[in-house]
């Protein structure tokens, strides 16, 4: 029966495109309406399935960017030039058109306000997406958990959610950017890849027992996790999600 999904059992459900938000030259957010949406927690993802006229199907996973908002689900998608799915989602799909989606999926890389903090989020590129869901969930709940986001981007133009992150800063949230490839004139912030020294300067000390969430390309996540362990943080407190070399 439609609309009576058994808990735990994943079913493909129709999702209608409601809105497209241009985030950066290569990244867009697609806002979907999923009538059967059962709700989600920050950090979870969905599987998206596209079916071609000849029956060929392609599936990809995308992190949920939004906090819980009824049947609305926002996915932030990086357009991969040689991608099978992302160019369709970012450039071809029109308002009112439908795709298939199943979720929410995952429970390991999840944060809820009741999990507490201090919270240290470390993002590489589009790895910021599930961490933004955590920041938005925290803000929507009026939660003041001490939270820091260390966010690595190539350039200022590649920073996703730049204005919103600035607006949400304060109330216990601190956002620190590092730009690895190019700097706007006069900028004085971090201008290198995330390393142990930067994590020590920005992040809480091991004695504060922070919860870490690191998300990004595999080499980025590996470097962050290794550096955190070297700094004396508890390995079990470091949760990671790897996108592979080119995003998902």
């Amino acid at each position: 029966m439609a609309g009576t999904a058994v808990p735990g059992r994943l079913t493909w459900e129709p999702a209608e495109l409601v809105e497209v938000i241009v985030e950066t030259p290569h990244v867009k957010t697609i806002v979907l309406d999923v009538p059967s949406w059962p709700g989600h927690r920050a950090g979870q993802h969905v599987d998206v399935r596209l079916t071609a006229a000849d029956g060929y199907q392609a599936e990809r996973s995308y992190s949920i960017a939004s906090a819980l908002d009824g049947t609305r689900v926002a996915l932030t998608v990086q357009r991969l030039e040689d991608g099978e799915v992302s160019p369709y989602l970012t450039d071809e799909l029109r308002q009112g058109e439908k795709i298939e989606l199943r979720g929410p999926i995952g429970g390991y890389f999840v944060w809820e306000p009741s999990d507490g903090g201090p919270l240290m989020l470390v993002a590489g590129g589009s790895g910021v997406v599930p961490l933004m869901a955590m920041i938005r969930t925290r803000a929507a709940a009026g939660d003041d958990t001490e939270t820091r986001l260390l966010y690595s981007s190539r350039s200022q133009d590649d920073v996703i959610y730049r204005d919103e992150l600035e607006q949400l800063s304060g109330n216990g949230l601190r956002v620190v950017h590092t730009l690895t490839d190019s700097q706007p004139p006069g900028r004085t912030g971090y201008a290198r890849r995330v390393d142990a020294e930067m994590l020590a300067e920005v992040g809480p000390r091991p004695a504060e027992r922070p919860h870490f969430y690191a998300c990004g390309p595999t080499p980025f996540v590996e470097a962050v996790a290794e550096a955190l362990v070297r700094l004396g943080h508890e390995p079990r407190a470091i949760k990671t999600e790897r996108f592979g070399p080119t995003g998902r």
């Binding site: 390991y108 390309p217 590996e222 999600e241 790897r242 996108f243 592979g244």
Partner: peptide, 17 residues
């Protein structure tokens, strides 16, 4: 390190299926 390596999150949907 293998750059193509992912983690358990990537097969969450398949495992739940």
């Amino acid at each position: 390190m293998d750059e193509l390596m992912l983690d358990g999150n990537a097969v969450a949907g398949l495992l739940q299926e």
